[in-house]
Amino acid sequence: MSKLLSVRLVAILVGLGFAFVALFAFVIGAYNAATEESQGHLPYEKPRDFDFAFEGPFGKWDAQQLQRGLKVYNEVCSACHSLKFVAFRDLEAIGYDESQVKAFAASKQVPGIDPNTGEATTRPGLPTDYFPSPYPNAVAAAAANNNAIPPDLSLMAKARADGTNYVASLLSGYAEPTAELLAEHPEAAPAPGLHHNPYFPNLNLAMAPPLTTTDQVTYDDGTQATVEQMSQDVAAFLAWTAEPTMVKRKQTGWPVLIFLLFATVLAYLSKKQIWAAAKPKKRD
């Protein structure tokens, strides 16, 4: 009996410990959220809600949109941002065939080794290579971007809250701070070399507007490349780079849920049948 009481006491203490940790985390999170503005952050707008084809439980990739997004990244974003977790051969998943992937990879220069001297050099890319960085190192990246290192975009759609909508809103949302905002927060005026964006949760943004004019890129499918369209297309492409198996995961999830539901019903009926004889009979 005493051993049973000890086990129960330990279980209660462990449960209280978990409850205390959860409560502590909630209090800290609430405090940080309440004091965020006082720590130098400005009020910022929530990302706009765009209608992407891959959203929802039955969503699917729009291959044409992903290809347009790759074109925007390749012709605009790749000048500053890397995509180090994406291999050229992965592009077959968005509708390119083997020859197209080989041609695209060969158009890129990737780090290599001279077989004769052993010195570092560059060579045309192969399908097995990954997207190269536009800078040799972080120091060079900072020197070229007002001392701000452009982040890698491979997982950006997962690294930000509501990431895909955030990326699309940010790219199409550059604007001068309003008079009302400057009156309440004079520090919102961008410093030299910085830019204001109402969707960016900080004082100023080091990245200049990358998408500025209509038809900045030319889409192969004839879609007009407005700033809004380019922003959504590259955001969708970055959603794919961050989780290329998203659609497959959703498609796998439905059979699993159906199986679990069927197994639950079957287990319940089995339990009813097994324990039916064990029910006490009612007295007359």
Rank of each mutant, 00 (worst) to 15 (best):
K3W: 15
V7P: 07
V14K: 03
G17L: 10
A19Q: 13
V21Q: 01
F24T: 00
F26W: 03
F26V: 00
V27R: 15
V27C: 02
E37C: 10
H41S: 04
H41L: 02
Y44W: 12
E45M: 00
P57T: 13
G59K: 01
Q67W: 10
Y73N: 02
E75V: 09
S82P: 12
G95P: 11
A106D: 15
S107I: 04
S107P: 06
K108N: 13
Q109F: 05
V110I: 08
A120N: 15
T121G: 05
R123M: 06
P124M: 04
L126E: 04
P127T: 07
T128M: 08
P136M: 06
A143I: 10
A143G: 15
K158Y: 03
D162S: 08
S172A: 05
Y174N: 00
E180Y: 14
A189L: 09
P190A: 07
H195G: 10
H195D: 05
H196C: 09
Y199W: 14
L203F: 07
N204S: 15
L205S: 11
L211V: 04
T214W: 10
Y219E: 01
D220G: 09
D220F: 05
Q224D: 00
T226F: 04
Q229C: 00
M230N: 01
M230S: 03
S231V: 12
S231M: 00
Q232R: 15
A235G: 05
F237I: 02
A239F: 04
A239E: 02
T241F: 10
V247C: 08
V247T: 13
R249P: 01
G253D: 04
F259A: 00
I274N: 10
D284R: 02
